[in-house]
Design a protein around this nucleic acid. Sequence first.
DNA 1: GCCTATTTGTTCGTATGTATC
DNA 2: CGATACATACGAACAAATAGG
Lengths: 253, 253
Amino acid sequence: MTAEPAAQPDERRRVVNRTDGVAAWRQIADGIEADIAEGRLNPGDQVAPEARLAERFGVNRHTVRRAIGVLVSRGLLRATQGRGTFVEAEPLAYPIGPRTRFSEVVTGAGREASGELIRAREVPADMILAAALGLTPGASMLELVTVHRADGTPLSTATVRVPLPRFAGFDRHYSSTGSITKAFQSCGLADYTRASTRISARPSGPEEARLLDLKPGRILLVIDSINVDAAGQPVQATRSLFSADRVELVVES
Amino acid sequence: MTAEPAAQPDERRRVVNRTDGVAAWRQIADGIEADIAEGRLNPGDQVAPEARLAERFGVNRHTVRRAIGVLVSRGLLRATQGRGTFVEAEPLAYPIGPRTRFSEVVTGAGREASGELIRAREVPADMILAAALGLTPGASMLELVTVHRADGTPLSTATVRVPLPRFAGFDRHYSSTGSITKAFQSCGLADYTRASTRISARPSGPEEARLLDLKPGRILLVIDSINVDAAGQPVQATRSLFSADRVELVVES
DNA sequence: GCCTATTTGTTCGTATGTATC
DNA sequence: CGATACATACGAACAAATAGG
């Protein structure tokens, strides 16, 4: 891996003020945040190693770690053991509307969209799901778990359920195209719209954290939606988990 | 202190299975969750004291505490030292649409809505806010911090900003009515609609946790919205913080 | 596969100022 | 005033992950 050229905004020694009552770690955190806000550090850039920052600010490495820690916990930085600490991308504004398509949103933001099928299996519909999709409980459904990325960074993971006699082979089509829209087209469904959307939030579990390349416990936005075809027939029940650090939802009115 | 009548769903001894490889605390947690899901424990009910549960399941009280701990952290239960552990209310389905009114949503769910003014002050508009509201930077605004409750339980806290020459006395009107809608009416604005909505999520800070009667670190849904009058003129910029444990957002299409 | 350098992650211990009772 | 708790900061060492040769 060719490391990105570490853009160092200012190599001069910027000693912290030890008399103004502001904790050293906070001054350092504010300094790094200002570097990001004012473009001296850009998304994807590597922050100088902790040891270098400690020297530059004239403090112990622990103090730098604390500053970096609060910025990581606020989602501005991402630290990876052995690699370094990097500036996170701005949260992507993700429209929630009747016709939102992941790939359109991401490419519209000038980023490269990709979708990966993690696994697919046949499951019986439980009572809640059957009611939502207008099926009889126990009816056979296809369940796909997918991960969606922008420029390689996972933004969301989704559990998609489609009724089975109608959409046989959906998993194969999704796997080859990486797009829900195209998989539906391959199954003969040209268009679909979102009928209902519910939004909640909770911390990520270990499995979800792994799929999204997050630390467990980071916050997820949970979006439950039902999509219907042109005739109003439900064709898809989806639970999408978005990293709250990486997207911001925009409601279209 | 008058404790609610402790509704005990099933006093029979339900010993945990110690051979199936599922941890005892998880079996107990699943059992309590099933009691809630299947109506044997209802919102507001007191869960049996830890000691009683420990006896019933044939485990140590520590094991019960772990089970309760995970349910508390998932927002299904609320434990208060000295009082007991209680079942939390179902998350309230809160519609996000062009004409959402807090009081209508809450009373429509059969609960009693109330709004409290925490503080109000005059502030100059910063650049971002001025752009959003169509003002010149530095223009005077009224900033209100409010808390909104359903049946006495805080659901959200909001920071409301209105342009000042136009809505002088807004804070007084809000304080006496407890309703944003009525305060606008008292200022001569009969109607307004939501122009833009952005949703994100983050952990609560200490101040917000206090206002919402939450533990710091619990998850908040952050909703930034701009409201406009009938002429399309922006009249209000609001940041609402909802407890993710107590509401679920429903997007109206 | 192995070795090494780099970098973050973790855990000891120590010291100091500040707020609270 | 002393006692205590807490946040802050420094020092040293080692563990663990990654990248490159």
